[in-house]
Write a protein that binds this DNA or RNA. Structure first.
Lengths: 162, 162
DNA sequence: TTGTGTGCAAAAGCTTTGCATGTTG
DNA sequence: CAACATGCAAAGCTTTTGCACACAA
């Protein structure tokens, strides 16, 4: 996560970026889209589409799953949100603007997600792109293991494998 | 893939391993399970559960989806099969015995999957495991990009994002 | 005003489960 | 013979789609 600006600075900038993106794409600047953006940037860590939907419903915000999924896709396209899959058939998301690029370490027992940075992954991307004649757009590196502490092994939504 | 033994050598050994695993786990050695193992080790590259099921049906083998999924899970547990998700909500599998550890490069246009090896990933695993106090069990590294050639951009089952 | 985004609900796609039957040990 | 895996179909879960309505431009 590694925050580099204040939450307000980030959110102001993020709204500007999303606005510019929507205009450039001739997409409408609807209140729902900005409400979802705001909700996402007020969250910490990772979440799935359903959790985001439920949380907005709980705040009495009238929004549909369709709009949540649609907006998440827009936000991923303009790089304000990152999409992950931690070994489950379930997409997880996290805000990505103003945070350092990082990869993930997932506990197979309790589902806890830690983040880390390693410059070698960038070297691998560059070398393999050259070697295999690919233009690398992005990557996903997940390490799966067991954390030290006596973690809650009964937690739901555990990663299965891979 | 990088084969290191002949197909027959591998398959003989793989049957032995699966047999031992089933005995150790007090699981039955049913013909269905070995038929699925055989089918998998006669395939190349990556496949999903449905493709495996369909292919067995086409060979007039009487097998159910439930058994396919159940057996795949057993095979993953005894490390004879690896499970992947290339950015889709769809598990992909590949045989893993007798093949070098490798990671994947996926074309976002045509879905093509290439494999590569890089020793630095092992270094990252060791270092991050130590640093963050995790016992790393396995990892998943996928590079997403665009391949040089004029690939078929209309292919189904393309990766979405992440 | 007009085209496009939205909400809602139904459908789709992958995977798991329940139950009766068949088979392994 | 008894326990457990199988086949089949139905259910479960996440995500997508269709359609009428509402609203941004």
């Amino acid at each position: 996560m590694v925050e580099t600006k204040t939450t307000n600075e980030v959110f102001t900038e993020v709204k500007r970026i999303f606005t510019a993106f929507l205009e450039q794409q001739n997409q409408r600047k609807t209140p729902e889209r900005f409400a979802i953006l705001e909700e996402i940037y007020h969250r910490t860590d990772h979440f799935d589409a359903e959790a985001l939907y439920i949380h907005m419903k709980n705040q009495s915000y009238r929004v549909s799953r369709a709009t949540v999924y649609n907006t998440l896709e827009l936000l991923v396209h303009c790089d304000l949100v990152k999409r992950h899959q931690f070994g489950k058939n379930l997409a997880q998301y996290e805000k990505s603007f103003g945070f350092k690029q990082h990869d993930h370490l997932i506990c197979l027992d309790c589902g806890k997600v830690l983040e880390f940075c390693d410059p070698r992954i960038q070297q691998i991307k560059t070398m393999m792109g050259d070697l295999l004649h690919f233009k690398i757009a992005h990557h996903s590196l997940n390490l799966y293991g067991h954390c030290d502490s006596a973690c809650d092994k009964n937690r739901k939504n555990l990663p299965t494998s891979a």
